[in-house]
């Protein structure tokens, strides 16, 4: 069964159409990146999915049901929303303990979840003294309490240091690929999720603009390769002769349109120039995303 299903979802706040007829699905065993610039409607979509916001029309279902109809929601869905959802005077352990009590989960899960996110040492500390990264980990721990099969995370990388982001990537992949969970993770930074996700859904101005597997989206469209040579070697004429369009970019590098890396490699060999960089660019996804974010 489809783990998450968003069907023709629309929601306005006053005159602002935050989400406009958005439809997509997330399957079990995969990580889906929900991407878009700030204010694109990501949070509204996720909050509709979690029963916190009532959509004007359309449906947002988890395992075929509305969130508000789930009998034991923490056992089915783990959610991480903003990092500020804690009482500063409460300890991390107590925060999780009362969620367990309210949800009827065994309190033993508290220390297990804290251990899973690497917060075991801070369990007895008040959340008020936590860094943003620790709060994100605690939020993730609360999502893990019921060992659900669906995870919904809104900008979980915010406030994490590079090591934390690295850890989060591995953890989300582990949940999806080893435990078969469906993971929906939103971000406004493409590079943050690029290495984690299997599928991508892009939203801007409340409307869906692109969706597909990461492989499709990066393969699609025009391929470009960035080439940089050591001083004195100019490849541009030879590349153009071979049919490429060459664009000079910052710092003397060339952006080559219309040739495969292998063809470029042969030209480099023929020209006997020293190559210092050759980077295939995932033009479509990056371009789409850049255009979207720059337009705002």
């Amino acid at each position: 069964m489809t783990a998450i299903e968003i069907r023709n979802l629309s929601k306005s706040f006053g005159a602002v159409r935050a989400v406009d007829d958005v439809t997509f699905t997330v399957e079990a065993g995969s990580v889906t990146g929900y991407l878009g610039p700030n204010g694109a409607g990501k949070t509204t979509t996720l909050r509709s999915l979690l029963g916190l916001v009532t959509p004007d029309s359309g449906e947002a279902l988890v395992g075929g049901k509305r969130y508000t109809d789930l009998a034991t929601p923490l056992n089915e869905v783990g959610a991480v929303l903003e990092a500020t959802n804690f009482h500063p005077g409460r300890t991390a352990r107590n925060h999780l303990r009362l969620l367990c009590v309210a949800a009827g989960l065994p309190v033993a899960r508290v220390d297990e979840a804290l251990g899973q996110v690497g917060l075991a040492d801070a369990a007895g500390k008040r959340v008020g003294g936590f860094s943003l990264g620790m709060r994100q980990r605690l939020a993730l721990a609360s999502a893990l309490l019921g060992e659900p099969k669906v995870y919904i995370l809104d900008e979980p990388a915010n406030g994490l240091d590079p090591a934390g982001i690295q850890w989060l990537r591995g953890f989300l992949r582990h949940l999806a690929h080893d435990r078969g969970a469906a993971v929906l993770v939103s971000s406004h930074v493409l590079s943050e999720v690029e290495q984690t996700v299997d599928n991508v859904v892009i939203i801007a101005g409340g409307r869906l603009v692109r969706q597909g597997t990461l492989a499709d989206l990066t393969a699609g469209g025009e391929k470009t390769v960035r080439v940089r040579t050591a001083e004195g070697g100019d490849l541009a004429p030879a590349l153009e002769k071979a049919g490429a369009t060459v664009e000079r970019v910052d710092g003397g590098a060339l952006r080559v349109h219309g040739l495969e890396p292998e063809e470029i490699g042969r030209i480099v060999l023929d020209q006997r120039v020293v190559l210092t960089e050759m980077t295939p660019e995932r033009s479509d996804l990056q371009k789409v995303f850049l255009e979207l974010t720059e337009a705002r």
Binding site: L50, G51, L52, Y67, T68, L70, P73, L74, V77, A79, L81, E82, T84, N85, F86, H87, P88, L99, A102, A103, S142
Partner: peptide, 17 residues
């Protein structure tokens, strides 16, 4: 205080009714 510290989100996620 549930609204002030936004713990209401977690509360309603745990008990959506």
């Amino acid at each position: 205080s549930e609204y002030r510290y936004q713990t209401i989100t977690g509360t309603f996620l745990t008990t959506p009714r």
